Structure formats: structure tokens, C-alpha cells
Computed example of a mutant assay.
Amino acid sequence: MRLHPIDGGDPRAVLEALPAALDGARPLALGFAPEPGNEVPDGTAVVIATSGSSGIPKRVILSAEALRASAAATAQRIGAGQWMLALPAGYIAGVQVIGRSLLAGRAPVLLEGRFTAEAFRRATGRLRSDADRYVSLVPAQLSTLLDAAEHDPGIRDALVSYRTVLVGGQALPAVLARRAHEAGARIVRTYGSSETGGGCVYDGVPLDGVRLQEVGGEIRIAGAHLATGYLGDAALTASAFPADEAGVRWYRTGDTGVVSDDGSLRVTGRIDNVIVSGGVNVSLDRVERAVHGIPGLEHAVVVGVPDERWGEASVVVTAPPVHESLWEAVRERVADEIGRPARPSRLVVVPEVPMLASGKPDREALRRMLREP
């Protein structure tokens, strides 16, 4: 089948084109221009260009069956109703917001322009009053709303009017989760990726039809929601989606975690997000979680950089305002929770932390910034 390019930055264009894609009749290329010969299997709905935060962009093939299976499992877990789109339509979370609404028979409301607390309130006001309300956010957006809600009751009223607020894209700091709970927001933490058709584990519990296993510390996922593979890269597809002896396809997430006896999941970090500092392996994910526990650093980003003395070291990057006392708090907390070798080498304050369109921190841009003299 031939791909049809759609501007992923135009939510209305994606909304108009997605019904035919969900029927498997007109597959969409989101966020990139397909090359001649870019054919996809029958039944393909979308091919999504990932953010490439690791510096290696990929184009993920998702079938209409996978998107429908994911949407149905979500509806079974949290209910069906009308969704508000506050995320980029060209990423899997945005595609799923539109798809869930369409499959529930209700057109989604699109947030107009740049995400702000006021834009969120206006969009919420356009939702139907006779339907349950749903929205997906990334942690930075949730933080924006909670900050505004402290002095604007109308923002809080808009946020708590949703039956469920899915929060994903990256780990949700415990401080932010507590603030949301205290404000009355009904949040659900999601875990997943483009390769899993979006979030497939809610608050640590896999959706119906989703299977989890831990192999050598790595989380693997199986189910009808899995992607078909990667466009034009058979070798990467075979590596990322191996089949077991029974013929079941599993997705190798690259994440570390623990699957409990009851089937619940606890994600601990990324296999490849580790530095070797002074001969000691240091998980930057663990360092970042410790840093996020310090008030004022809930949105700090921890990245690894070359270090003349230790080989590699971690750096905490954040935006103002930052009090001088936070640096000592960082060193002490990381030493207490992880150990002295894991302590970051410095705290860098930048005017604004660069972000990807998906709402995640642009770690590669930060690494480049820190390497520049």
C-alpha cells in the first residue's frame, strides 16, 4: 500500500484523514515525506516518525487493528466519552486521542494554538456536557495547569472536570503526582511507546490483552496493539520484535523494570541511560528521580557528559528560578539514595530547557549544549 503524507503538526488534517486510516484503506505518513518505494503492508493505518530523543529517528508502522485494539482496551479500563486533544497530533498519544474519540462516536475537541492554562480552559469549555471527559497530558503540561490553578479557580475547575487525565510520555515526578491529587485531578500514569500503540500499562497494571515479561532485566511487551515494525529497516524490526518458541511477537522496550507476581509493572530506567563514572555504573534515570524529589527541581533533566577526571559525569540542567541551596540538596539526596559516586558534577541553569514536540526534554540538544565551550 502507498503512504499518504499528512502534516502531523496540523491536528485538523490528521482528524480528517484518520477515519480512512482506521479502516485500513488509506495509510498515513505522519511527520515525514515517504520516499518512492515506501510500501507498507495491507491494513496499515499510520507510520509515525518518532521523536528521536536518542538521536536515532525511527518510522513506526502501526496497523488499523493495533490502533483499534489499543483504543478498545483503554475504553474498557477507563470508559469511553469525548476527548480533548492537547498533544501534537503527529505523535502516537495524539493519534490515539483522536482515534479513541472517533471510535466512541464523538469528535474530539482540539486545543487551539500553543498549550497554555487559558487555552486548556477554553478547549475544556467546548466539550459536551453530557459525555465523560478525557484528556492526555505530559508532565510539563500538568505542571503548567497546577501552577495556574493555585491562583485561578477556573483552571482547577477545568482540570477536575475530566473523568480521567492520562499522564505519560515520561516519568511523572512524585511531587507533581501529589499536587495533582491534592487539587482533585483524577490522573492515571501511562506507560508505552509508539511501538506499543501508545500507553498500554495504566498505573502499573497492563491493559486487557497486554502481556508483560522481564528478560535479563529488560521489559518486553506482547499483544494485538504492537506495531508491525519499522519502515525500511527489516534488521531493526527483527531485533526489536523477536518471536518466542510459540510464535508470539514481543517488543523489546529497552527499559529496565520488574514484573511482579501479580502481573503489575514497575519501570526503573533505561538500559542505555547509564554512564560509567570513575569505574562505577550510574543510572541517570535513578539520579533524575532522586533530583525530582527536591521541591523546585521537579522538571530538572539529568544528562551524562564526558569528564576529564571521572571519564563520565552527570549534570543537572534546569530553568530558573533556582535557589543556591538546591545544589547541596541535590548532592546530599543523590548520595543518600544511590551512593556518593552517583552525585552529579554540577548544576546548570539555562533560560529554558529545550523540549521535543512530543513534550519530552530534548536530551540530545542538552548534551550538545553542555559540550560546547
Score class of each variant (00 low, 15 high):
M1T: 04
R2E: 12
P11N: 13
A13C: 05
V14C: 05
L15C: 04
A17F: 01
A21W: 00
G24T: 09
G24K: 04
P27V: 05
L28R: 13
L28H: 02
A29H: 01
E35S: 10
E39C: 03
E39Y: 00
V40P: 00
P41C: 01
D42K: 00
D42R: 00
G43I: 05
G43L: 03
A45E: 06
I48V: 15
G52K: 07
S53A: 14
S54Q: 07
I56T: 11
K58M: 08
V60G: 02
I61W: 00
L62K: 05
G79I: 09
A80F: 00
Q82T: 08
Y91S: 09
A93N: 08
V95F: 00
G99S: 15
L102Y: 01
P108F: 00
L110R: 08
R114M: 09
E118K: 14
E118R: 15
F120R: 13
A123K: 10
T124W: 01
T124F: 01
G125L: 06
L127H: 04
V135P: 11
T144S: 11
A148S: 13
D152V: 13
I155W: 00
R156A: 12
A158C: 09
T164E: 13
L166R: 13
P173I: 07
R178H: 04
V188P: 06
T196F: 02
L207S: 08
V210C: 05
V210A: 02
R211F: 11
Q213V: 08
Q213K: 15
G216Q: 07
G217W: 12
R220Y: 12
I221N: 07
D233Q: 07
L236Q: 14
L236S: 15
A238V: 07
E245T: 10
A246F: 03
G247V: 13
T253A: 04
G254R: 01
D255Q: 08
V259G: 06
V259F: 11
L265W: 11
V267N: 04
I271L: 15
D272T: 14
G279L: 06
V280E: 14
V280K: 11
R286A: 14
R286P: 01
L297W: 09
E298R: 10
H299E: 15
A300F: 05
V302G: 04
V303H: 09
V303T: 12
V305H: 04
W310C: 04
G311S: 06
E312L: 09
A313I: 08
V316W: 14
T318H: 11
A319C: 02
H323E: 13
S325F: 05
S325A: 14
W327D: 08
E328S: 09
V330G: 00
R331C: 04
R333N: 03
I338H: 05
P341T: 09
R343G: 01
S345W: 07
R346N: 01
P351A: 11
P354T: 12
L356N: 06
A357E: 02
G359Q: 08
A365M: 09
L366C: 08
R371Q: 13
E372D: 03
E372L: 10
